[in-house]
């Protein structure tokens, strides 16, 4: 078997914050699985601590954060702080949901590699993760 076939990408789809809008997270989780990745979905209302704990436990290559409540500016910095503390700064982090364009530069500076807004095809998300994780 080729190395590509033996190593499946492991992706954590996570919902930080308190909002219950999980349609996007679940559709993306399923699309990534159908694209051949190993997907772990956290469920809703996850704290940064719970998300990073899951990322460590599951030894993932990528984390996809979905948030629609507007709390990303507070929650994402904490997630990156915890990732660094756990030596996971090489994990690919992407985000989606309702994230205003003007917040994107700050999130990128923090380490979010891509922000996928409403209307993004799931195939584009899968491709980005495959090429960058």
């Amino acid at each position: 078997m080729s190395p590509a076939a033996t190593k499946r990408l492991r992706v954590l789809v996570a919902k930080p914050g308190l909002d219950g809008h999980d349609r996007g997270a679940k559709v993306v989780a399923r699309a990534l699985r159908d694209a051949g990745m190993e997907v772990i979905y956290t469920g809703i209302r996850q704290t940064p601590e719970q998300i990073v704990e899951a990322a460590v436990q599951e030894d993932v290559n990528a984390i996809a954060l979905s948030i629609l409540s507007g709390a990303h500016r507070e929650l994402f910095p904490r997630i990156f702080e915890l990732l660094r503390q756990n030596g996971m700064e090489d994990v690919l982090v992407v985000a989606g949901g309702i994230i205003p364009d003007e917040d994107v530069p700050d999130l990128k500076a923090l380490g979010v590699r891509a922000v996928f807004g409403p209307g993004t095809p799931t195939s584009a998300i899968a491709e980005f993760i495959r090429n960058n994780a």
Binding site: G17, L18, D19, R45, T47, S69, G70, A71, E74, L75
Partner: peptide
């Protein structure tokens, strides 16, 4: 806001980043 909906006061640790947001 979500803390009010889920029964957390505004100063609860789970609430902090969500106060007044939605």
């Amino acid at each position: 806001d979500l803390p009010t909906q889920i029964g957390y006061d505004s100063d609860h640790p789970m609430a902090l980043s969500e106060v007044g947001k939605v």
